[in-house]
Amino acid sequence: MSAAAEAAVKKNYLTGLKEAMYEEMERNPDLICLGEDIGLLGGAFGVTDGLMDKYGKERVIDMPIAEAAIIGAGVGMALNGKTVMCEMQFIDFISCGFDQIVNMAATFHYRSAGEVSIPMVIRGPAGGYGGGALYHSQMNEAWFCNSPGLKVVCPSNPIDAKGLLTAALRDPNPVVFYEIKELYRNRKMEQELETGDDCIIPLGVARIAEVGSDITIVTYGNPVHFSLKAAEKLKAQGYSAEVIDLRSLVPLDEDTILESLSKTNRLLVVNEAPMTCGFAGEVMARMGRKGFELLDAPPARVTRTDTPVPWAKPLESTVLPSVDDIVNSALELIRY
């Protein structure tokens, strides 16, 4: 199939990730992939499906169940000239490799006074709403936003999944990459995808997912779609919500948020992670300072409750943010 004909086909989120992996493996012969079950099996979710057959088991390494070794060995390869992709089978398991990320990878450039950079992407399926319970539902991005030296990225759609992963794989820094597994095979949001340089979405540039004038909803990941649904409901009540998809948390595109606030004067931040020290709080703090003069109401946030994510449906629904939660908070702010 020609590139043009291929581009005309609409593809899902997972395909976006997969294409980014294949294209970068082809473009960059120094790219090495490490992870559990990523070779023979092709990954638990299939992001690396067929990659080992094409590029060999030396570049696509089926690792033992050992996240610290996966990330640590990846750091060593990067130290010796390679670009590295480490797959976490679920992003929840990243905690098993925590020290290697925050103390080894994140600080390498700093403590070597710039001699060494670690081009490395640590990516994995994240997020709740699928009955994954405590250890297959997490959004733990705040841990890494609080660790200087890491970039943190979270795409919400196929174009961004491909474009941000391509950018991350070309970035000279370690990037923690949150994939929304509930969106992997979502057919309703399939999109046409560009190839190579044309697909790149630079890190640190937010996207206005919906233009509006009464309130700014800042979010990322799966809640982007809940916020868009909330915006529809608000429209039915005569209110216009602007939805900003951050796409990357570190670096953070403050300008796009400030510009939006200069128009709407109201800020609601939505994240799927727990409230305390979550990223929504960071956005509120920065805007509370830099955008203070722009605000007509105290900023608000919708987050998971400060609990683990439980399994049974009514329990899970209680703790995770919903469309109605967003609508209710938005109305409160608009009517403030």
């Binding site: 090495i32 610290a68 640590g72 060995a73 080894m104």
Partner: peptide, 21 residues
Amino acid sequence: IHSTSMLAGTIPVAAGVVYAD
């Protein structure tokens, strides 16, 4: 190899270095 205070933490890094080599 640049070490940290986390003991044994550089052994996986060392393994990665020679894997690449």
